[in-house]
Amino acid sequence: MLFTILTCYTPSMDKLRSLEIFLATCDEGSFAAAARACNTDPSTVSKAINRLEAQLGLTLFQRSTRQLRITEAGKHYAETVRKMTRELSSCEEELKQLNDSPSGTLKINSAVCYGHLYLRPLLRSFCQQYPAIRLELDINDMHVDIIDNNIDIALRTGYVKDSRLVARRLSPMDFFTCVSPDYLKYHDVPRCPEDFQQHPWIGFRIKETQQLQPIFLPDEHGEYSLYELERSHITDDGETMAYMCEDGLGFAQLPHFLAKQGLDSGKLISLYPHFRLPQDESGVFAIYPKRDYLPAKVRVFIDFLNDALSRMQEGANHSWAEHWKPMIDFNEKRPPSNKA
Rank of each mutant, 00 (worst) to 15 (best):
Y118L: 15
F301C: 02
S103G: 00
A286Y: 00
G222T: 03
S101F: 03
E87F: 11
A259M: 13
C113A: 15
E79V: 11
I328T: 08
A167E: 05
L217F: 09
E94P: 00
E322P: 14
P255F: 04
I202W: 01
I49A: 01
G262N: 09
F31M: 05
L95Q: 06
G29H: 01
S101Y: 03
W320S: 15
L98Y: 01
D195V: 04
T65P: 00
A111M: 12
E79Y: 07
T80Y: 11
N50F: 09
P326K: 01
Y9I: 08
F285C: 06
R124G: 12
Q67C: 05
P190H: 08
P278V: 01
F3M: 08
A34K: 00
S270G: 14
M13W: 13
Y224H: 05
G262W: 00
Q97T: 03
F3V: 10
S110D: 06
G266R: 10
T157K: 10
T157R: 10
R124T: 14
N39A: 10
K333N: 15
W201F: 12
G74T: 00
P214W: 11
A73W: 07
F31T: 01
Q213R: 15
K325T: 15
R134I: 08
Y130W: 06
Q62H: 10
E20S: 07
S46Q: 04
F204T: 02
F304S: 08
L88D: 05
H221M: 14
Q97R: 07
K107D: 02
I302Y: 02
T44R: 04
F3P: 05
S89F: 09
D292E: 12
P131I: 01
A37V: 08
Y9L: 13
G250Q: 02
L2E: 01
A259Q: 08
V179I: 07
G74E: 01
Q129F: 03
R311Y: 12
L56W: 06
A32N: 03
Q253G: 13
I147N: 09
S265T: 13
R169K: 09
T4Q: 09
L271V: 14
A321M: 09
I234M: 11
M241A: 15
Q128G: 06
W320E: 15
Q197K: 07
G262S: 12
D195T: 06
R205G: 05
A308L: 09
P102E: 00
H143I: 13
E94M: 06
P131A: 02
Y224L: 13
S103C: 04
P200S: 06
A316Q: 14
M312D: 15
A24C: 07
N50D: 08
E20L: 08
C127F: 03
S46D: 02
P273T: 15
P214H: 12
K107S: 11
A242Q: 09
A37P: 07
R191H: 11
P214F: 10
F257I: 14
